[in-house]
Simulated scan of single mutants.
Amino acid sequence: MNFFSTVKGSLLEGFYPKGWNLEKIDQCCAQSPEDKVKRQSFWNDDFQLVPSENENDFSMMMGHEIAQNIYRTKEAGKKLALILPVGPMGMYKWVVYFLKEWNTDCAHVYGFNMDEWSDAEGNTLPSTSDGSFERAMEQAFYGPLGDLTVPKEQRNFATKENLPTYAEKIANLKTEGAELITVFGIGRVMHIAFWEPHFAEEFDRVEDWKKQTHRIAAQLHPLTIEQNAITSFKSRTTLIPCRANTVGPGLFLQSDRIIGGCDGTLGRGMQWQGLSFAVTLQYGPDMWIPSSFMPTLPGKLFYLEELAGPLTPESN
């Protein structure tokens, strides 16, 4: 049976983003593990893949990369703007560890949380709430750094009042010689931050899509909701807002460097991120696949080797 011939007329018709080429997506997934990570012509010359065998190594190496860039810019006397995710998260304890070992403070760092859950008007969860990205960052990164931490006035969170100021703040920092580094994960539907693939339907030209710096109360794809139910909410879909405030390609594609991470394995041979990883690397830049632009930027993408597959069906 041909899967693609059964989509039309099914519940899946209209569920997947209109611009997705499902056969091309499947071809990316069907490649051998070696071919999935093979360098492509559209990759930046300074884009590198960094494999790891297990989650502990992954978190340590990704944390070291973030800390090393904080240290490097500190030594160079430069300011550093960091667009930061809440997922993956394991690297933050290692960022803290290395910065404390090196006694490197973050007075030169400006943090910009890339997204936050919201209601339909863009109102966000209180910072003290379970599930709040601001709370998660304070507990995992800013708080544990102690005296070495990023000054409070240099921590930015994606509220409906503050998110629209990100573009100007980052532009001003760049005029002062600051570097911009985006740290990111890749979503089930290949989003970066909560910049979802179906937003592409609103734009006739990719150039206009690339100019979008942010979105308030962005409508999330159902697969994004389910991804977060699995990874962050102990399966409780009913707790997850259907909207979020998020940065857009007009910010993350300005990055001088990127530090990405894919660690979406679940144990017992199960995973949710293999498709997203393969398509990001092999599909080619396309505004319906936001993460497909990340290999066009200089930097590193850390990943668990299991995600490369082979991505073949099995019973668990």
Rank of each mutant, 00 (worst) to 15 (best):
S132Q: 00
N103A: 02
D115E: 05
K211I: 05
W94D: 12
V150D: 11
P88K: 00
F199H: 13
K100C: 07
N123E: 13
Y97Q: 13
D204M: 05
H198Q: 14
S132V: 05
G187W: 06
V189R: 04
Q139S: 08
T175N: 14
V189N: 13
E207I: 06
K211T: 12
D115F: 01
D208N: 12
G185K: 03
E176K: 15
E207C: 06
K210F: 04
V206I: 14
L145A: 09
D204W: 06
E153R: 07
R188E: 02
F194S: 09
Q154N: 14
I181V: 12
W94I: 00
G90A: 12
K100Y: 09
T124E: 03
I170V: 11
P144T: 10
V189Q: 09
E116P: 14
A120W: 10
G131M: 00
K100M: 11
L145S: 10
F184N: 03
D204V: 01
V189D: 15
Q212N: 12
K174T: 03
W94G: 03
W195F: 15
A193S: 15
E101L: 13
L148A: 04
I181Y: 10
E207F: 07
P151D: 08
I181A: 05
P88M: 02
E116Y: 08
S129K: 14
T104M: 15
V96G: 08
Q212V: 15
V206K: 13
R135Y: 02
E201Q: 12
I170M: 08
A167H: 15
M137T: 05
P126A: 04
M91A: 13
F141Q: 04
Y92D: 02
G177I: 04
G185N: 02
F157A: 01
E161S: 11
H191G: 06
D105A: 12
E161A: 09
E116N: 10
H198N: 09
G87L: 02
E207N: 07
N172C: 07
I181H: 10
A171K: 14
M89L: 09
T182K: 07
S127L: 02
W102S: 05
M137L: 10
N113K: 00
A193T: 13
D130C: 00
E201G: 01
F199R: 13
